[in-house]
Structures are given as structure tokens and as C-alpha cells.
Design a protein around this nucleic acid. Structure first.
Lengths: 339, 339
DNA sequence: TTGTATGCGTTATCAT
DNA sequence: ATGATAACGCATACAA
């Protein structure tokens, strides 16, 4: 499909209305102008279906009202929700959002950064993994979940507290022997603190614990071996498991079902993220809920704020716990929705 | 966070390299230039960290390499996946994507269209509901799931065939008395054909069927009443249900569990969309799978193609069926993934 | 082959 | 208050 003839410009409007260019500009920008002139210009605008050219505006003003958002993908429900909420926050402020799905690929991340800079975005929000990202210091950047350097603010949830909360919950629910399972990137980022928080909680509550962390190229089957080795007479020695993400929790639950271990009767499971079915229905599992909405809003707010003051390097937002059916409590139900 | 000093321009590069503006432009655009000049220019570019200004380019070329995508949200897993795949297709072609989450709000849809046009996007892909959307005819537009007019291509899956397939599957699985349940927008769009296809399939296979369609502001509870009325001695009179979406199927399954009706033993359920947990793990339910990847690719391809020929008004892509545990078959399992 | 000049659509600074 | 004009950064047609 090819674009048809080029769109009308301010010049066309000026000619149609029989006024000067500057007058048209003033009308468009709400600068006072003679009543009769305004009416003629407005008539010409609607007659020609004139629309301002944001590109010309951006070139002139050196401001594009555009923010690039780098995220691995929008298929994962947590990323999908985060993307949606960032979009909301940006739209609320009349900003446009350039979506950049990086697939967690280090090169793609860099390419998107370059693209965004060439596009003269007013800022970038990135949930990235590349430890050597080259970002032009003149482009404001806010990182999610990873500390990237002294001058780059990082927004995350309180991962340490989340881990601790998980341990406390398991203790409250009667567990005595628990495990922490983690998978994913070997790169250091904030979510790694979930482990330390969990261990801290276990110590405080006198819980015996063990941890198992998969390397980057390990298969999920490693966990099966790990768990099998800790079964005696068809009984798992753990009565509680904390998984670093809801995704992992889900897969572990599948695995346990294969091993005929019942959840939550035999072993209670807590995940992390607060993922819900279809975005806002039931939780997949009992989980530490990230304040996604606050994270999104905070990213946008910090990115777009004018003052250079009050720019703390790391912002940790509080997490909460939600029962989702994989612990011995009644699961929380979402408010009833129509449709 | 404020932008630091403004970025270097071609003029700065020219001065740094001691050459003329045009020469720099040529180097950047790969137009042959004297070896020594090229080297000096490239040195200046990397010294100054120069990056072209896409806005200036776009203004000059009247082309922005940007496409706006209008979608209700990215929380719903089907929309989330579609968004991801459209992003992929666009990126592959070096296009940027402006994400516009409309929340299915008719005014937001119009506002985003206006914004996109002011942004001089090269095209718009929209899954929209506003029947009176004002779209500048000079902006190429491809619609998803809704026919918007003679000059606007519409990409969708074969909804009719999907409905028919659902009926056939239920018949094959031994059902004799089935129901079709639908909810959502009262506006006419392609997915409405699922009902006709289902009815057609039921007739062909001699299945007795009943349909229940909720109005826009009805509550999901209406379905509970409907189903309760069709129970005798704790037994539901239907042995199969086709739901217009996986989301609805999921909610109906919850409802049935409340009524102590077992799925799939007492009643088999088929949904529509092909939604999977975490994007690519298990299906939520047995379902008619939309060819999301093909839909995304087709939208982009049609939108960006140069020729005005071969632009059929309606493109129906084939659907398939996947067992997801809510029918009397072993559910399909996704290929084992690492991590 | 290299440099110069003009225009893209807009805004803002001037005179008028 | 209104109209003419320069400038934003880049690409290109044209002159050197």
C-alpha cells in the first residue's frame, strides 16, 4: 500500500485562508489572534483536513514526546503487563511509546538503543541484560531490575524483602524444610536478591533450607533430578518450595505432579511476580506480587521529571503476598468482572 | 531527568573532518566518496559519537519507517502475543513500532489515530471497535478482525471454519447435545462468524445445539443462570460446549466446577484463540488455534507492500485445533524448553 | 569527485 | 496584531 499524495501543510492552510504562515501557527498553538482570522484559519484547517507534522515540530523543538521501551518480549505475562502499564503512564502524559522487543538478545538491545537515539527519543526505559550497553549520556535512561551505573536510575521491587516474605509465609504455613529454586540469566540483577532474602528469612524463622540454581544452559530436567534425589518412599523431604518466578513455580508444579507429589498437601509452593491468568484473573500460584503498576509509573515519572535533583540510584518498591492455591490457604479471587 | 547539551549534527562532523556537509551525508548514506575523505569523516563521526537524526530524515524524505499498532491492551495473552509478533515482523523490516493501547475505548482509538497521523507514520495496523473511525485516506491502514470499508484490507483467521471445526471435534469426541456461548462486543466483526460456523457444523453432524449470547453489559453470572436451568439431578444436559474465546472457556470451567460438573468427563469444552500459559507453555483449554504468527506477518506485509494491486479486502488465514485437556483426549504438550 | 544551496514543515524572532 | 524570514538537521540537485 502506497501513501497517496502528500498531506497538506501549514502553507496550504495559510493560502486557503488567505493569511500568513505565522498566523496559522499561532492559531494551532493557541496563541491569541484576531477573531476573524482565527475563524478563517480554522475553516481552512477542517476543509483541508490539516494535521500538524510532529516530525517537523520535533526537529524544531528538539523534543519528540517519544520514549522507547526495551523489554524482552510481550508474551511473558509479567512483561506484557509491565508494557501495558508503561504505555498507560506515557499516554497519560501525552507521550508516545516506541516498543522494542529485544528477545533478551544482547545485540538486539544495543541495536534498539542506537535506533532510539537516532530517533531522538526523549528517553528510554529498559529491562535489559547487556552489561556493556552503550548509551549516549545525553539520552535519559531508566533501568528496570538492573543497576547499570551511577548515573542511571534503577527501578525494581524489593526483591530481598520478597524472598524474606516467602520464607516467613512458608514458616507461618507450617513448613520446616524448604527449598529455593532459581533459573535464568547468570547476569547480576536485582531479582538475584530474592535468594538472599529467602535465606535470611529462613534463618530468622529457623527453617532448614537448601537451594538449587540452574546455570544458563541447563535444562529444566535438572530440577527433576534434584527433586527425585530428595524423595524417600515416594515422599519429598521438602514441605515448602520458593521459586524465583511464577513461571518456574508453574513448571515445578508440573514436575511434582509427574512425581505424584501433591501441591499444596505434600509441599507448598510460592512463586514470584504475581502473574495472573488472562492478565487479571486468578493467580497461577501463591506468589510474591510485584507492584507492577507502581513500577511502571515510577519509571515514567523519573524519566520525564525535569529536575536533576532527587534522582536516587535505586528505587525499591514494596511487594506483597497473595495466596494462589499452592499453599494451604483459600486462594484469593479477583473481583467479579463482567464480560 | 533533563537532556544534556544537544547532540552533534552533520555540520559538526563536517567541521571536525574539515569537509563539506554534502560529503558527510554521502558517507553516511554509502554514496562513494574519496577514500581519504571517507576515513576522515568516519573518524569525526566516531569521535563525536554522531548519530543521524531520523526526524530530520523523515521530514526530508516524507517517510518515517514507523508504524502505529492499535490494540486494546497487552495484558490479554492473545493480544500480547499478537503485539509481540507484529513487533517482530516490523523490526525485521527495519520499521519502528508505535504501541497504542486503546483499552477498546472508541475515543482513545480515534485519538491514537490522530496522533499517529500527526506523527506521519507510514501506516497503521489496528484491532479496533469504533465503527466511525476517521482515518485519513492517505495513511495506509490494515484492520484486524473487522471489515472497515472497501479500501481497507482486513486480516483475520477463518472464524467460520473454526466454529465448524469445533462442532466437528465435539461430534468426533462423542457429543450429542452441545452449546455455543459468546460474550463481548455487540459490534459486528469477523469473530462473530464463529457462531454461524459452529451451527453449520452442528447441522452437518446432526448435533443438537443451543446458543447463549451475552449482551454488552450483562454479567458473567448470566451464564450461571443459563447453565443451572439446564441441569437435572445434578447433571448438565449438554455434553459439549463451544466458547467464543479461551477466556470465556476458562470462566465457564470455573463456573462448572462451582456447579460440580466435571470437565471433560461430564462436559467437554472447546475455546477459541489458542492461548497458552506464559505465552508458550500449555494450552488453557482445548481450543481452535489462531495462526497468530501468520496474521502478524500478513498485516505487516500488506501494509508495507508497494503495489496497490492484489489488495484483497478480506484475508482469512486457516485455523487448527489443539487438545488442551478439556476434551477427552491427551492434551498436547509443548516442546520441552530449557530455563 | 567535492562543495554549495535549496527545501522539507514548523516555530520564533523580527519588522511592519 | 499580522506578515515576512531565519533556523532546526538532513538530502539532493546543481555548480565548481
Amino acid at each position: 500500500m502506497r501513501k497517496k499524495s502528500s498531506a497538506p501543510t501549514m502553507k496550504d492552510v495559510a493560502q486557503e485562508a488567505g493569511v500568513a504562515l505565522g498566523t496559522v501557527s499561532k492559531v494551532i498553538n493557541g496563541i491569541p489572534v484576531g477573531e476573524s482570522y482565527r475563524i478563517r484559519v480554522e475553516a481552512a484547517i477542517s476543509k483541508l483536513h490539516y494535521q500538524v507534522n510532529s516530525y517537523a515540530q520535533g526537529l524544531k523543538a528538539n523534543k519528540t514526546y517519544t520514549v522507547a521501551v526495551l523489554i524482552p518480549n510481550t508474551k511473558d505475562p509479567y512483561f506484557a503487563r509491565l508494557t501495558n502499564l508503561i504505555n498507560l503512564s506515557l499516554t497519560k502524559r501525552k507521550y508516545r511509546m516506541l516498543l522494542c522487543c529485544t528477545d533478551s538478545d544482547l545485540s538486539f538491545e544495543q541495536e534498539y538503543i542506537t535506533m532510539a537515539q537516532q530517533n531522538k527519543v526523549d528517553g528510554i526505559i529498559g529491562l535489559t541484560y547487556n552489561p556493556n550497553l552503550l548509551i549516549n549520556p545525553e539520552t535519559p535512561f531508566v533501568s528496570i531490575d538492573r543497576i547499570m551505573g551511577a548515573n542511571i536510575p534503577c527501578v525494581t521491587c524489593d526483591n530481598f524483602m520478597g524472598g524474606q516474605l516467602a520464607a516467613e509465609k512458608l514458616a507461618d504455613l507450617g513448613c520446616r524444610n524448604v527449598a529455593f529454586l532459581r533459573t535464568g540469566s547468570s547476569l547480576t540483577n536485582e531479582p538475584n536478591k530474592r535468594k538472599a532474602g529467602f535465606e535470611n528469612g529462613c534463618l530468622a524463622r529457623n527453617l532448614h533450607y537448601e537451594t538449587k540454581i540452574l546455570e544458563d544452559d541447563d535444562l529444566i530436567e535438572e530440577f527433576e533430578t534434584f527433586l527425585r534425589e530428595r524423595m524417600q518412599n515416594g515422599r519429598l523431604e521438602f514441605d515448602g518450595i520458593f521459586c524465583s518466578t511464577d513461571l518456574l513455580a508453574y513448571r515445578i508444579i508440573q514436575l511434582l505432579s509427574k512425581l505424584s507429589v501433591k501441591v499444596p498437601e505434600d509441599v507448598q509452593i510460592i512463586g514470584f511476580d504475581g502473574v495472573r491468568l488472562f492478565g487479571d484473573l486468578d493467580y497461577i500460584c501463591s506468589t510474591i506480587v510485584q507492584p507492577v503498576s507502581d513500577i511502571a509509573e515510577m519509571c515514567v515519572q523519573i524519566l520525564l521529571q525535569d529536575t536533576l535533583t532527587a534522582r536516587p540510584p535505586l528505587i525499591c518498591l514494596p511487594v506483597s503476598y497473595a495466596a494462589g492455591g499452592t499453599t494451604k490457604e483459600p486462594p484469593e479471587r479477583p473481583e467479579s468482572l463482567s464480560g
